[in-house]
C-alpha cells in the first residue's frame, strides 16, 4: 500500500495509514528523497502512528530516509511512535540515533517551524 505524501508549504508530510511491506517502505523512502528536490522542501514529517510494528528493516529504512533527506538539504522528523512500539524497539536495541523524533504531528510541525525559521535569519 502506497503512503500518501502531502505537500504543505515548505514541508512534505507522509502519513502511514496501515502496515507496510518492506517494498512499501523502500518506495516511501525513494519518493520522499525525490520530492524534496522537486518541491524544494525544507522539512519532511513521517507520521508512523498507524504502525504497530517497527522492526529492524523499518527502523533502518526510516533512518536512511532521514540521512538521505539531510544530504538533500532538508530535515526529517519522525512522529507518532506508539508506546508498545517504542518498548519493542528498545528491547531490540533499535534507537533511531541521529534522527529527530517528536510525539505527534503537531510537535513535529512546531519543531520544523522553529528550526527552519531560525535558519532563515542566521
Amino acid at each position: 500500500m502506497q503512503v500518501p505524501i502531502l505537500k504543505q508549504g515548505p514541508y512534505l508530510i507522509a502519513t502511514i495509514q496501515s502496515a507496510l511491506t518492506d517494498a512499501d517502505i523502500v518506495q516511501l523512502r525513494d519518493a520522499l528523497v525525490e520530492q524534496v528536490g522537486r518541491y524544494r522542501s525544507r522539512g519532511v514529517i513521517i507520521d508512523v502512528t498507524a504502525l504497530d510494528v517497527m522492526d529492524s528493516f523499518a527502523t533502518g529504512t526510516l533512518r536512511d530516509v532521514a540521512h538521505m533527506v539531510r544530504l538533500r538539504g532538508a530535515e526529517t522528523v519522525i512522529v507518532g511512535i506508539q508506546p508498545d512500539v517504542a518498548f519493542a524497539m528498545v528491547h531490540m536495541g533499535l534507537t533511531l540515533e541521529g534522527v529527530t523524533t517528536r510525539l505527534d504531528l503537531e510537535e513535529g510541525l512546531d519543531h520544523l517551524n522553529r528550526n527552519i525559521k531560525s535558519a532563515a535569519y542566521r
Binding site: D52, V53, M54, D55, S56, F57, P83, D84, V85, F87, A88, H91, M92
Partner: peptide, 14 residues
C-alpha cells in the same frame, strides 16, 4: 498483554 503481543509480532517479523 498487548505490549507483549507487540514484542512477539516484532520477533516474528525479524
Amino acid at each position: 498483554r498487548p505490549t507483549d503481543a507487540t514484542l512477539i509480532a516484532t520477533a516474528i517479523s525479524e
